[in-house]
Design a protein around this nucleic acid. Sequence first.
DNA 1: CTGTTCTCCTGTGGGC
DNA 2: TGCCCACAGGAGAACA
Length: 273
Amino acid sequence: MPELPEVETTRRGIAPFIMNQTISQVEVRQPRLRWPVMSNLGSQLEGEKVLSVKRRAKYLLIELASGTLIIHLGMSGNLRVFTNLSAPPIQKHDHLDIVFTNGTLLRFHDPRRFGAVLWFSGAIEHHPLLVNLGPEPLSADFNADYLGRKLAKQKRAIKLAIMDNKTVVGVGNIYANEALFRTGIHPATTSMQLDKRQIIALTDAIKQILQEAITAGGSTLRDFVNSAGKSGYFQLQHVVYGRAGELCPQCGHPIEKMVLGQRSSFYCPQCQR
DNA sequence: CTGTTCTCCTGTGGGC
DNA sequence: TGCCCACAGGAGAACA
């Protein structure tokens, strides 16, 4: 399940192959993704050159002269690059291909179809999906002062707050669980009850975990090209996520599971209070 | 505005 | 071995 580190690894993996390349053809085999792929996507993209490959939150932003292609990998999506028309046969859930004039092929694959491929011709920072997003977790804008101010009047559980894109982007369920364990904060703690020390520790833990995962992803970069493997899927070792009933590596108490906001939360009741 | 629930989708894994 | 079904999850949308 791509979280921010996987999306960033995808960006770094595909960028060298599509930068400055001109799109020659777009083939949409399954337009029914999270939102329908526009029927004239091909005519919008064909003939345009890729000017940059950026990321905002978990959205990949492929900038062309006349607009931006927005790609979200959803739960199960991936992008892979094939060179010199060496692409393997189309497989189930290969929903979309973008072919470049030099033969490079960018292929979007997404079994659960929670992903999205959108075209936006306006200034990308004004896109409705992006305009209300909080800061990037690895940027200086996300810091303890900011988070403290943000949480000061919030009664909801801290885990829900850090998973809310308006607080900070890119913290999915897995890394939210891990960051709270690392910080010794119970996931159901009321946000406004956290003290300064805890907020500093939580900010640091989120940055560290995401950075560690991005670094780990670097070793998979070559898998984005001409690979039949599951490009971009890697995972840091989970300490608590999915480990209900197993013993806490710090204190030996069994890991517990509770549901917050319809999402499973895993924690050590002894280490996290 | 805040908080909660619903929804999209398919592969996986547990129970029997 | 096969069938059934709960479950997982990002995040917008809808609703209270």
